[in-house]
Design a protein around this nucleic acid. Structure first.
Lengths: 142, 142
DNA sequence: CATCAATAATTGATATATCAACAATTATTT
DNA sequence: AAATAATTGTTGATATATCAATTATTGATG
């Protein structure tokens, strides 16, 4: 039987988890009480002011139900406001609060730094090539 | 602010999830009621008969607590037997049952097929290079 | 316009991830 | 040998993932 750690999925999994834990650790260390996943949602609202939760779920590649619950936590934390959308009562209208805006920007700085560290000694071309390969794998799995 | 989907972490995340969902779907479609994560644990027991739960957690890159709970599910499903280790009463002794052995092998076949599909049109050299890059990222995050 | 289909979001159930606290056992130190 | 430290695993609490069922609303069709 093929050894576990020879597979690409294994390395992918390990890399993603290592990166994610590393990034999360640095955010905590800087004193911010937010997860990377929560920040990604704040960021997608910041970048797309009129976005729906459905679209967020596609962007951050998570289930609709997860988005609802994470957003509830972000509201509890005072980073987001949820209202009924004026032109479509099925939708929600998400707005960043002042502290929501601040933490989105602050954590973004840390995220950029994280990326720099994670990609140390890897040239831009190689990163691009890796992205292309990952994209090809994604296509193959559809 | 940098767009979300330009980042490597994003593509990594997406690729891993897509691959995982794809693999999981194929396992279900073949009629097996087991998750990829559960199968990975069965497989690591099959490959390392005297393994501890601590070591499993390192191999599959998960928390100790998660391993305990997943193993409990595998016991409930009749795939694993847990006993006290004869020479160290702190440890557990994990053994695959007959159906545990069978499903480990069966799902392995599907996993090999999944990998082939996922890596279609990607040559061996590129896969190896991607693994190396991912490994480099892992090192950078330590 | 009444009905049916589609869409947006929520909720429930179960599995898993993570951290911290804990219990049991074994190893080490003095 | 007794005290202390280290190791192995479990449990509790909370967050998240996933699927299915449900509600509310809007859109489409006859």
């Amino acid at each position: 039987m093929e050894k576990l750690n020879d597979t690409l999925l294994y390395t992918l999994d390990k890399c993603f988890r290592t990166y994610n834990q590393f990034a999360q650790r640095n955010v905590r260390k800087a004193g911010y009480d937010i997860t990377i996943d929560q920040w990604l949602i704040l960021k997608s609202v910041a970048e797309n002011p009129d976005i729906t939760q459905n679209d967020i779920s596609k962007i951050v590649f998570k289930d609709n139900a997860s988005i609802t619950r994470i957003i509830q936590l972000l509201i509890n934390a005072g980073y987001l406001i949820r209202e009924i959308h004026p032109s479509d009562r099925r939708r929600v209208n998400l707005t960043l609060t002042g502290s929501g805006k601040k933490i989105t920007i602050d954590v973004n700085e840390i995220a950029i730094q994280n990326r720099t560290t994670a990609l140390k000694n890897i040239n831009e071309e190689a990163v691009q090539q890796m992205k292309n390969l990952l994209q090809q794998v994604i296509e193959n799995c559809k």
